[in-house]
Amino acid sequence: MSDRPERISAEEVDAVARLAMLALTEDQVERFAHQLADVLDHAADIEALDLDGVEPMARPVRVVNVLRPDEPGPALDRDEVLGQAPAAEDGQFRVPPVLGGAP
């Protein structure tokens, strides 16, 4: 372990993991914090770049307006789909009780 302040703290790793619906062990949190700090250290080179005039490139293709006609296609078979589900009931996916509303 080095003396330099880590670029990402254990608390941050834990908080981010929870945002991603992952429960990390204490050991994982510590390890990930160091490893992610290394990756972010490596990324320091681009952090320092002045790219103000450069357009971001979200995807490599430059085509626009890829559209589909509003025509119905085949539906999947519900029984086949629900047969793959961990739990189903009354033609629906069954999950443990949902607490709290959707955003």
């Binding site: 619906m21 429960a23 996916f93 999950v95 443990p96 009780p97």
Partner: peptide
Amino acid sequence: VRYGRRVDAPTAGEMMVATRT
């Protein structure tokens, strides 16, 4: 929820976390 593995838990949110973890 819809396919693959599930690890059960008392609430949907906890189930998702347990499954992904």
